[in-house]
């Protein structure tokens, strides 16, 4: 009984929510800004400012913020995010619904781009294994984009204390800390280069978590205001598909492939070093 009320009390702690309200309102008032870079533009959205401002008020990061809010009250923000993203997801759905006939026209692109994230491994795995000399951490770190379902899978297969577990947690933490902002900036930058169809960029926004999708497609919508609804609908639909199928792609394709690829690479690494020795 008592623990229950403490949990609710912690969740309702006014300091945390007040900080969030003040920071959000301030960020919204600053509004969307942009900086030109060569032929492209870097877009800055209120959600970036909110993230960065709150880093300064996080008692785990800056010392003085301990006076504003203690660590216990700040840490309860973690489960709040899980719920906090749902209003956005609901709003997102209302953009997908009306556009569904249009999305269906792009059927194969929408379904197959889910497999595009296997590209991750082709780039990241060789560098992790050959350049950074990582061990089996590389499998956990590079087999997926390391969101919650991917952690669950690794934890199920190898355990979180395994090397694979450490790898997936490392990328998960980075994603939680900076992934949202990185995705938004990458999308915003690629948008202004003109290399991609905005709808393709929008679909790619859906590969990660809900907040990654949100920030990423928000930036795209700002870059292409005339296509705003279409962009949000495509990104939302892609994220829905990722949620529905991502785990199966991970189980049946990504993880087995990364096991195979890792063995291949680490084997080749030994072969290469043996060859260099021989040459010397």
């Amino acid at each position: 009984m008592k623990t229950q009320s403490t949990a609710i009390g912690l969740l309702l702690n006014w300091r945390l929510h007040l900080i969030v309200i003040v920071v959000s309102a301030l960020s919204e008032l600053i509004g969307i800004q942009s900086i030109p870079v060569a032929n492209a533009k870097l877009l800055f959205l209120p959600l970036f400012y909110a993230f960065i401002l709150c880093l300064f008020v996080n008692p785990n990061i800056t010392k003085f913020s301990g006076k504003i809010i203690n660590k216990k009250n700040a840490s309860i923000a973690a489960p709040i995010i899980v719920i906090g993203i749902l209003p956005f997801i609901a709003k997102f759905g209302t953009l997908i619904g009306p556009a569904l006939p249009k999305i269906a026209e792009s059927g194969s692109a929408m379904v197959l781009q889910e497999l595009g994230n296997l590209g991750t491994m082709l780039i990241a795995m060789p560098i992790a294994v050959l350049v950074f000399k990582m061990g089996r951490e590389a499998i956990g770190a590079t087999y997926s984009i390391a969101r919650e379902p991917n952690i669950a899978l690794v934890s199920d297969r190898y355990g979180l204390k395994s090397h694979e577990g450490i790898g997936v947690m490392g990328v998960y933490v980075m994603g939680t800390m900076f992934g949202t902002i990185y995705f938004a900036m990458l999308a915003g930058f690629l948008a202004t280069t003109g290399w991609f169809d905005p709808r393709a960029l929008a679909m790619a926004c859906g590969v990660g978590s809900g907040s990654m999708t949100a920030a990423c497609s928000g930036t795209l919508a700002t870059a292409f205001p005339s296509m705003k609804n279409e962009i949000l609908a495509f990104a939302g639909a892609s994220n829905l598909l990722t949620n529905a199928t991502g785990l199966y792609v991970a189980i049946f394709i990504a993880l087995p492939f990364s096991e195979w690829f890792y063995k291949k690479l680490s084997g080749e690494k030994k072969a290469t070093s043996a060859m260099t020795k021989g040459a010397n």
């Binding site: 959000s24 709150c54 660590k71 973690a78 953009l95 939680t176 928000g218």
Partner: peptide
């Protein structure tokens, strides 16, 4: 849609642990 994401990012930054 963007205004309702802003608080989520604020919570996310507050949730970063030791």
């Amino acid at each position: 849609f963007l205004s309702i994401v802003t608080p989520v990012l604020a919570y996310a930054a507050m949730a970063i642990t030791k």
